[in-house]
Amino acid sequence: MLKIDNLHAGVEGNEILNGINLEVNAGEVHAIMGPNGSGKSTLAAVIAGKEEFEVTEGTVILDGEDLEDSAPEERAHKGIFMSFQYPVEIPGVTVTNFMRTAINESRKARGLEEMPANQMLKLIREKSELLEIDRKFLSRSLNEGFSGGEKKRNEIFQMAMLEPKLAILDETDSGLDIDALRIVANGVNKLRSESNAVIVITHYQRLLEYIVPDYVHVLHEGKIVKSGTKELALELEEKGYDWIKNEAVV
């Protein structure tokens, strides 16, 4: 589904990603781990098409199509979703209104009519129940005054609403207490299917107990330095990142 080949990207001449190779097939869950500043968020943003980052080499291919010339919203229409590490506040725009706009814009791009209001309401009800979100919450301004945990849960609510083909979750677990973590993981697991894929970016092994990955990759200084199965996450937890850093040097 997603094929990243020798990807180099950076900001104003500073290379942040230097030669990423990654292949994600439908039905798989990949975890990306790595120390702070290793380029995890940058990788997510580059896949989502953030123009701030310049791709200097390599390709990102989704379902056989090079994404180079696709704007971020076009990538979203193609089914890429990213849960932000730091979700942005939009004052005065309710969660419901934001979701309604997002869904209808995607439908429009696919040549569909706007979703009828009753269907929208039903969807919202269903997904907010799945993520145990209080309905009052949906009338609040997007992310404004939300706690860290509420923001993350709201990201996953949006993911559930949009039912993306490829979901990239950037440190969705940070700021979540154990109950919230379980709820969020449950939301993600509900999305998992033969035709979808998930990339989970995390620091900790904890989340991976709930969202069990098929593969684990370790990112260091803009490169994937080690790949393995879920056991790699445990090993990392035990030995710390220094182990990888040292190994990378060798």
Binding site: G49, E73, A76, V93, T101, S106
Partner: peptide, 19 residues
């Protein structure tokens, strides 16, 4: 803010209107 909206499938023009 704009990128956040873009990422949800909302183009820049519409994102500004929304904001």
């Amino acid at each position: 803010q704009i990128f956040y909206c873009n990422q949800r499938g909302i183009d820049t023009e519409k994102a500004i209107a929304l904001i």
